[in-house]
Amino acid sequence: MSGQITILGAGVAGLCMATELVARGYDVRLIDPKGGPGAHGCSWWAGGMLAPDCEGAVAEEPVVRHGRKAAEWWTANGAEITYGGSLVVALGRDRQELDRFARRTDRFDWITRDRLAEFEPDLADRFDRALFMTGESHLNPRPVLLTLRERLKSNGVQVETTGTPTGQVIDCRGLSAADRLSDLRGVKGEMVILRAPDITLSRPVRLLHPRFPLYIVPRGDGVFMLGATQIESGQRTRATVRSVMELLNAAYALHPAFGEAEIMEIGVDARPAFPDNLPRIGRYADGTLYANGLFRHGYLLAPALARMMGDHLDADGNPREKPEFWHENHN
């Protein structure tokens, strides 16, 4: 295919979109006033879990279905993916949370202490059973975003900081697009990055708790990401003591050695979400296309949105069936 495309926004949505459309032969420009991925965008602060089955305990079916294909897309596009599954645990008092979680998800094995000791020896004396989510994987968001940017660059697509869009415009600006999408809202998330050399984990671990659910993603070299709060607020800059305390408490409950960890970063941003917490691709009244509303599923669903947009463009904007998540705006 050919045709000029201008993508606005170089977060995970815009970079995946650009990567997919370049691969399909489009002439792509990428504009982001901040010059590319970085601390100004919420995908910089993500956990990077590709955990469709865990998310399925709360999220709707399309998140699981599309999410299961994400790791394959990322691998094909140069991202380093760790295929180790993930674990779900609960403290003794909250055992029934684990049963409930298991009832609402799929593709897991119940494992007991012996098997847990093979997977994650550091957790085996703390938990006597866990769910092992067999099909899940994870990535490290920042290097992955930078990899996409570099690969685009080597394909002749530089992130422009200024410039007038040309050709078909695709708006991937995340929460900044709330100026055009009236029902897009921010859902605040806070996270912490720790260095805890005394703890070894090889895969993401979710700690179920009735008040403070937490996940921990190992980033290598004794570095861990703790995430994440989920607050109905578009506030993007202030992490509160209460939130950070909850995250740290939960980490300490998972393993007391986190008490000795070094706090490297406290991060905060707001995720862009529509009222059903599902993403959309669509068209504004002026013909500009958009992909947005990835909520807490940026790395999980951005590839699917990019593929859907590619299919839509390949059919000259007139596919026989409208893409899933399609939305026509009247402004």
Partner: peptide, 14 residues
């Protein structure tokens, strides 16, 4: 009402 949200009415979408 989360107190943190009050200052700039950041929860107003919800």
């Amino acid at each position: 009402v989360r107190r943190e949200a009050g200052g700039e009415q950041a929860g107003q979408d919800f």
